[in-house]
Write a protein that binds this DNA or RNA. Sequence first.
DNA 1: AACTGTGAAGTCGTTCACAGCA
DNA 2: TGCTGTGAACGACTTCACAGTT
Lengths: 209, 209
Amino acid sequence: MKKKIPDKTVQRLSVYYRCLYFLSQQGTGEISSKSLADLLEMKPDQVRKDLSYFGKFGKRGSGYYVPDLVQQIAKILGLEHGRKVAVVGMGNLGTALAAYKGFEVLGFNVVATFDVSPQKIGKKIRGVMCYGMKDLNKVIKEKNIEMALLTVPPEVVQEVTSAIVAAGIKAILNFSSVTLNVPKGVKASDVDLASELKSLSYFMTTSNR
Amino acid sequence: MKKKIPDKTVQRLSVYYRCLYFLSQQGTGEISSKSLADLLEMKPDQVRKDLSYFGKFGKRGSGYYVPDLVQQIAKILGLEHGRKVAVVGMGNLGTALAAYKGFEVLGFNVVATFDVSPQKIGKKIRGVMCYGMKDLNKVIKEKNIEMALLTVPPEVVQEVTSAIVAAGIKAILNFSSVTLNVPKGVKASDVDLASELKSLSYFMTTSNR
DNA sequence: AACTGTGAAGTCGTTCACAGCA
DNA sequence: TGCTGTGAACGACTTCACAGTT
């Protein structure tokens, strides 16, 4: 529990979480690293190693008790209490994200959206109020929003980023294909759709893997 | 050029591509690994190593000639001639993807969309015709579509996947949070938004990195 | 007997450091 | 001299293999 935890392990923790959450809802009691690994198409060793970075959650001889493990992972990931999320930029992608059910069920709540368009400002979009950019600071602070999904045009990405960081946002998921420049203490992660497609294209043209 | 090329290298190739494409449009002639690395916030060594897997593109003493390098990478990534892409599932996310400008400029063309909704079938959405699921096979074969962006509900993901693979799709970008089961020869890649968010959440709660 | 937790070994990817060319 | 291309050293992540627990 004292060693450095690989990034990859943390990413996989999310995958375990979704799977275990599902299993717990199905009423599954215990599960072995082998069964869980099979479900996720990975090796049992990997599952055990990953979990062991955070503690000893399993029972030798039987496996892991699913409801407890879900709780533990939720705690590690900081999901015990719903996290408040803002969507900044309500174009097609932003609207899709604001409506995405996958987030809510897993402890993320979109509590505000932002856009520049006067047609959108002041209206509820998919049940969530849309504010103008000038209210960024006020709303983020008032509602205590910690995370943002950024889907604004590339030209204004950096400007908007500075504004939301100043307002207190601690984590950003960035959907523009521009690399974000954030101060220490703020975590940013990029989702680059075009890059994903290009990797696919490469793998299609070759026969490796 | 005979050795196995790391996956990570291929992924970065996409990043180099976008950057170099931009530079070439700006009229940049030559660039050193150092300058390119600075632009992308990476190390020059990494850039050179990555490129060297595919050949010797640079000139010692001066650097790389941008227009040529762009061409070379486009060729490696299979982007010389536009690739045809279908969007399957025209909910919010699918609609956003179909309209996403970032794809077209880089050699991907969305030439068909598919949905189950009678309100959408037969209409053009963002300039692209929307077909019913029963036409999947016909349209994909007729138009020679090679790649698909999958944004259908989890319940039908596997079923739809089988259908499009049977129709000849060779690469799939999967946006549902379900792991795809594809035959050998087909490359699938998952974009898992909720997982991304959860990793962020973890990094927010700790102070490492 | 079944399964976990974990050092040790192995594999994969990155960084170093320098030889070689323009 | 300036910068590429690349083996070699290093570091990160994965897999192995087994001791330990129920």
